[in-house]
Design a protein around this nucleic acid. Structure first.
Lengths: 229, 229
DNA sequence: ACCTGAACACCGTTCAAGT
DNA sequence: ACCTGAACACCGTTCAAGT
């Protein structure tokens, strides 16, 4: 209809959408700000108004990626019936997303963001991990399991400094929950990597997801970390 | 000593070494052929004699990466005592390598190589996976477990076409072995990714490796796939 | 506030020319 | 066989100028 296509108030959103598509076509290395500007019908300097540099765009894409994955996992949870089924569905949703948007996933787990952008990415990741936590069934009373929202540093030591009594039953319970959750994310991430790198086929990947889900749910760790509804 | 540094017969090796160092400093995106040429003291066109383009260099680096990881795993196996200890040491060696040389690892599992280069990378990966297989203890008699050396394609269906008798005991045994091995690689890969992306700390990563090793060794899958020495 | 377009430094790739 | 150096197209980034 109009002569000059769009690029009015929503250039930022257009660029991000175009970027997601470009990522699927040619990966992170093939992602060019100038090419994006061309696709959006603006001059090569225009993106600068919304992203100070290429890194800023990449960081915004990482945040967007975590949001989309969060939605996918949420849908998987919504359409599930019981702990076992839920666990399996979430696992498949996670790996499917990681395989379909491999380049986006790469940006989400690059860890190259710095400063405020890094905090935003970590926050988006934290929201996803909190959702994964909720998929593990209700947490122990008094342990809301949200200690992963804070700083990305820490040292990994979280024992022996907040209980006055050395024997207050199950002192490592939310530690197990945290471990289980991260092990889940790591395993699904890794399976996706094997598929993307063609080390295994897609159907073999699906079988691996099922095997992993079974193994994890049947483990000693699960007994301490996961609870039925 | 000499005025013009080196670059005589071994420019290819020099470029690869320089590239590994550059990868550690500035990642895959920061790797530039011209910069490498400068570091090696040759003109920017010189690398062309050894690598037809940037992709060829990246593929060569992937192969080199698999060889180095293979060596690390082999050392871990050599210095271990018993199945459990061996398993744990290999796991840590794998993750340590992946964290220290994250950018190299990225190249190893990108899956962007094409043609002959892709076959070379797959072959190098196959050698590593065969070693991982051997770390799982002796295989069943008559199943040398080397069906992962072939083409990277397949469809994932490997049942019901080579046994004349439908009930020849443990028909899925080496299937379990394959699954276990790939699940191992996937899990360690994923843990490394979480560390690199700063989603977890290094010490937390080490704890995850131990938890994963324990969970995997104690699984039903392990009972079918792994054998004591 | 947002976009244009020239300018600059850097890059990968190609190729004739040297040794 | 291996390397040089000019040439070309592309890129990210900066910035004065427009609206």
């Amino acid at each position: 209809m109009t002569d000059r296509p769009f690029h009015h108030g929503n250039l930022r959103a257009v660029l991000l959408d175009e970027a997601v598509a470009a990522l699927r076509e040619s990966g992170v290395e093939g992602l060019s700000l100038r090419e994006l500007a061309r696709r959006a019908g603006v001059s090569h300097g225009a993106p600068r108004s919304h992203f100070v540099d290429r890194r800023a765009l990449l960081d915004a894409l990482a945040v967007l990626g975590f949001e989309r994955l969060h939605d996918r996992v949420q849908q998987a949870i919504a359409g599930s019936d019981g702990l076992r089924d839920r666990f399996r569905r979430v696992a498949h949703a996670y790996v499917d997303f990681a395989v379909e948007d491999a380049a986006l996933m790469e940006l989400m787990f690059e860890g190259k963001a710095v400063g405020a952008a890094a905090a935003e990415v970590q926050a988006a990741a934290g929201t996803l991990f909190t959702l994964l936590d909720s998929a593990m069934g209700p947490a122990r009373a008094g342990t809301p399991a949200d200690q992963d929202e804070g700083a990305p540093d820490g040292g990994g030591h979280d024992d022996g400094d907040h209980e006055g009594d050395p024997r207050d039953g199950d002192p490592r319970d939310d530690g197990a929950r945290e471990t289980f959750k991260m092990l889940f994310a790591a395993t699904m991430q890794g399976i996706a990597t094997l598929v993307v790198s063609r080390r295994i086929g897609r159907t073999q990947g699906d079988e691996l997801v099922d095997a992993a889900a079974e193994t994890m749910l049947g483990s000693d760790l699960a007994r301490r970390a996961v609870s039925a509804d």
